[in-house]
Amino acid sequence: MATKTDSAALALLDLRCPRCRRGKLFVTSALSTRFAEMHAHCPICDLALEPEPGFYWGAMFVSYGFSVASFFVGGAAAYYLFNDPPTWVYVLIVTLLVLITTPLVLRYSRAIMLHLFGGIHYNPDAAKTTPAPPRA
């Protein structure tokens, strides 16, 4: 069975650091009110998780793609499950779907941005080194 460190895709799906594939990217769970709070540095390999100032502005384009997918899924579900309901039902379903999935969309948009466009390469030895002391 593959582990998180075997595959970049599994590390991405589990929201792990792209360099060591072990450290968590986010401080709390997606169900917390602080769902967007990321570690400044990977807790395992001390990689800076914001490669440059404003890096995650690009994640809004990934988030837009997720939102468009939500519109299509919500619209198709409303059409087929409720037999082409009135317009307000479409609006309500799509709005609820977008609001409910916001924490996951934000997290995965940032993780995809970091993994694909961060210029960070996997280093299996990065996790074996002693991490730096926690930063204030």
Rank of each mutant, 00 (worst) to 15 (best):
F117S: 04
D6L: 08
D125S: 11
A2V: 01
L116M: 15
C42V: 01
L106P: 00
P43A: 13
A69P: 02
F66Y: 09
S109P: 03
D46H: 12
N83Q: 14
G75T: 06
C17S: 08
L10H: 08
F55N: 02
Y64T: 04
R34V: 07
H39W: 12
S109G: 12
A126C: 09
P53K: 09
T102D: 05
L114T: 06
A36F: 08
M38C: 00
V91Y: 03
V91E: 04
T28S: 14
F55H: 01
P124R: 08
D125F: 04
K24W: 11
A76K: 00
P53Y: 07
E37P: 06
T95R: 14
M38S: 00
W88G: 00
W57P: 02
V98G: 10
T102S: 13
G23C: 14
T129H: 09
E50M: 03
G118H: 10
G118D: 09
V94P: 01
A69L: 09
L10V: 06
R19Q: 09
D6S: 10
Y108I: 06
R107P: 02
H41V: 13
I93N: 07
V89P: 04
L99I: 02
E50Q: 05
H41P: 07
L10I: 09
E52G: 01
T28G: 11
S67L: 11
P124S: 09
S29C: 13
F71A: 15
A48E: 12
R110V: 01
A9V: 03
A40I: 07
Y108E: 07
P134G: 09
G65T: 06
T130Y: 01
N83T: 14
V62Q: 02
A59T: 13
F71M: 15
L81Y: 10
L92E: 05
A59M: 13
L116R: 15
E52D: 12
Y80R: 13
T3K: 14
A59K: 14
G58I: 03
Y79A: 07
M113P: 03
